[in-house]
């Protein structure tokens, strides 16, 4: 029983860490530009498919190389999408709704493109690390440990970037005060595009990390979009700290509900969390950038 509960806690922590990486990206876009990206789940799948393609190349034999090559591809893709599809809408009335609609359209386009290019069957990636820690009934795979530390590492790198780089400083300034940021010379449009690109890298990396456990499918991103949205709303729209707390709470909740009631109950419980949050505390745990 104790080992079972330990397993559940570890599973919750590992999923929570990857959810945190992805939810921070989603809340970052909303916190900075007030835009909600409905294609976020499809960017998760994109990360998995890019890794799948890279592993097909003869000279790629390690995850280090995959991350090294996938990150700039995702960054450029996110930057291009923002500049080509999202930025032109910002000057129009009700642009937030229009951004939701166009990213929804992009999600459908990407998911169907994945189906045409890669087929409907699920794709798998090789394990990140082999072996496991074992002690009696206790079992913890090295892969899970690696996923946990890579996700936490990704979040720490992101935190360092926000606090210690010129672009990070501009992202924080635009998030807190877009008008004030512009008049001290910060290019707001570039910051919006950079934020979108960074969040694409974060969710794409999440896609590569989780694809080792849950496979890659053309429609697999929708589940992630829903979870990231629940976490973002639960933590507080635009609050990075709130998103981190919410990601681990949701990861843990999902693990315990799956273990006790069965996996079919997890989404029901997540939606119950979302509804309760919106009804009782619409601003979420933190409610603002933090």
């Amino acid at each position: 029983m104790i080992f079972e509960i330990a397993d559940v806690i570890i599973s919750g922590l590992i999923n929570g860490s990857v959810y945190a990486l992805m939810a921070v990206g989603l809340t970052l876009i909303y916190g900075v530009s007030r835009a909600f990206n409905f294609a976020y789940g499809s960017f998760y799948s994109l990360g998995g498919y890019i890794a799948f393609l890279l592993f097909g190349l003869s000279f790629i034999n390690s995850y280090f190389l995959v991350f090294l090559l996938a990150a700039p591809i995702l960054l450029l893709f996110g930057f291009f999408v923002e500049k080509a599809l999202v930025a032109p809408l910002r000057k129009r009335d009700d642009w937030e709704i229009k951004v939701m609609m166009i990213t929804l359209g992009l999600a459908l386009l990407l998911d169907n493109a994945y189906q045409v290019i890669f087929g409907a069957r699920m794709k798998s990636l090789p394990p990140f690390l082999g072996g496991a820690f074992e002690a009696g009934d206790f079992y913890l795979s090295h892969q899970d440990v690696g996923i946990f530390f890579l996700s936490i590492g990704g979040i720490l790198v992101f935190r360092w970037f926000l606090n210690n780089t010129r672009t990070g400083m501009s992202v924080r300034a635009v998030a807190q005060n877009p008008a004030g940021a512009q008049i001290v010379g910060i290019p707001k449009e570039f910051v919006f595009a950079a934020t979108f690109a960074i969040s694409t890298v974060m969710v794409g990396m999440g896609g590569i990390l989780l694809a080792q456990k849950y496979f890659i499918t053309p429609m697999g991103g929708w589940d992630i979009l829903v979870k990231a949205w629940v976490i973002t709303a639960f933590g507080g729209m635009g609050s990075i700290r709130g998103g981190l707390y919410a990601a681990f709470i949701v990861g843990m909740l999902e693990a315990f509900v799956g273990w006790y009631f069965g996996m079919t109950w997890t989404l029901i419980v997540l939606f119950a969390v979302l509804l309760t949050t919106l009804a009782v505390r619409p601003q979420g745990l933190m409610g603002k950038w933090g």
């Binding site: 924080r172 807190q176 005060n177 008008a179 004030g180 008049i183």
Partner: peptide, 8 residues
């Protein structure tokens, strides 16, 4: 109204 950046 001073347009500050509260967390900076």
């Amino acid at each position: 109204i001073p347009q500050t950046f509260p967390s900076l």
